[in-house]
Nucleic acid binder design. Structure first.
Lengths: 194, 194
DNA sequence: CAGGGAAGCGGACTGTGGTCCGTATGGAGC
DNA sequence: GCTCCATACGGACCACAGTCCGCTTCCCTG
């Protein structure tokens, strides 16, 4: 999605950046929730068809807006410094993973919700979920977690779904520190100490 | 929603049942996913306004279709025989709770997804979620679960979100028995043995 | 530099969820 | 049975996501 598949034509590349800039501005201005595709197209001075050609659907556009930061996240998990990256024990890395995600949701919350709110199940089928799942699964395997590792990964990731986290933060009034503490307890309860 | 708020007018009551019957038929025929509100209105011989007056929105209609069965579920949790109902130790009740939910999802899966796919966070704010959350929270408290009980309840319920369960069943190819086993392991890991 | 064809563009169009408001009707009070 | 008005009805109407297709532009080839 972020790569120009083969040879992206000059006008297409120009349009993509224009659209992203316009979308970014509108989202900053009035929230991801209330930005419409027509608005973005108009703001970018581009036809609606072009919008959908580039990003597939609304969620695709939102994901594209998140893409850069999301890639930063993934870099941190894979190659960054411990305890997020390699070097620390798997359980500590899992805890750091969750805390990092919670911080990410804190900042990008609404955008994340907008990006996930697509066709039912689309979120789970998407490659981003697969990547997180693979990461968590690997860490679980590394720490000799008993039981079905894939299932535990799904449960852990379910605890980090942005819709739920925002509900806990805003509706239940939990603080971020509290959520991080709870996440740590959860991981410690599910993953043996080594 | 299921009660005639005060004195429901005769024509209104008639329409409600007609609509529910029509919707039920259409859903049975071609799946909850692909039934449109116009279709239901036409099939029930009723205006669209009437539809929305009675059920608020699409999700409301789907929830109404689920309502009877859902109420059966809740009855079972609260007053039914052990281990689902009172009498068994809390941890066993929690395990039974999850297994019952998994069976429910097995049967009502698509309808549940259609009923949950509303505005972001609406599912969590809805009274049905609150009821399940209260039930799980009470069982956790009863079993002297350490840590933030509310958080653990959210995590447990997140593992039972129908979107996720259907993904695990259909996309990951997990069997229902496997899911029940995993659920049991999850509860046992999070709840002390007493 | 010219020609041709593929890639891209735009905006009219469609389908769907949801609202609005003028009209019809049930049923309470007489 | 009659009157009256809160309640409910219906379908035209709106907003928005997503599609379609005739036209334009880019850029590769010779």
């Amino acid at each position: 999605m972020v790569e120009p598949a083969r040879h992206e034509r000059a006008d297409a590349a120009r349009n993509r950046t224009t659209i992203l800039a316009a979308a970014e501005g509108l989202v900053a201005e009035c929230g991801a929730q209330c930005v419409t595709m027509d608005q973005v197209a108009r703001a970018a001075g581009v036809g609606k068809g072009t919008l959908f050609r580039h990003f597939g659907d609304r969620c695709g556009l939102m994901r594209a807006l998140l893409d850069e930061r999301e890639r930063g996240l993934q870099e941190g998990f894979i190659r960054g410094p411990a305890p997020l990256g390699p070097g620390a024990p798997a359980r500590a890395r899992l805890i750091a993973f969750g805390e990092r995600m919670l911080e990410h949701i804190e900042i990008q919350g609404d955008l994340l919700v907008a990006a996930e709110n697509g066709a039912p199940g689309a979120r789970l089928r998407h490659s981003v979920y697969a990547a997180y799942r693979a990461h968590v699964t690997a860490l679980l395997r590394e720490s000799d977690c008993d039981g079905e590792i894939g299932y535990v990964a799904d449960v852990l990731l379910a605890a980090l779904v942005s819709e739920l986290v925002l509900f806990q933060r805003r509706e239940l009034g939990m603080s971020q520190e509290q959520l991080k503490r709870c996440w740590g307890d959860l991981v410690r309860a599910l993953v043996p100490a080594r």
